[in-house]
Amino acid sequence: GDIVPVERTTVNDKAALERVLASFKSDTTFFDTLTLTNPKSLAITDPENDLERELEFYKQALWAAQHAETLFSAASLPFHRPEDYFAEMLKTDAHMSTIRQSLLDESAGIKASE
């Protein structure tokens, strides 16, 4: 069913928001937080369109990764993990092999249907 938007009186105290922001905003450099802000707006015309939206997110993230890499190399800091560096991963090996298996199954299924 359609939801009828009800007009409500809502608060948006911009002056207080700016004051509160100034009270806790920390003075940081890129290497403290590794945080970037995309200089370009996303071109999402229809947020319901999954393909278009996800592509815009992907492009923003890719820009950030590439920009960060240049900042790291300018500061001569290591960025990519070397091949021989091993440490605990976020997802377990067992889970990753399940993912690989499902990808294989999927591609086998596509081949079989062709």
Binding site: L17, T33, T35, T37, S41, A65, L90
Partner: peptide, 22 residues
């Protein structure tokens, strides 16, 4: 995808975050 447990991410924010106080 997968990544190291506890590696520092690059955090990227949309431009719109700088456009209104909230």
């Amino acid at each position: 995808g997968n990544c190291l447990k506890g590696s520092r991410p690059i955090v990227v924010f949309d431009k719109q975050f700088d456009e209104s106080p909230h």
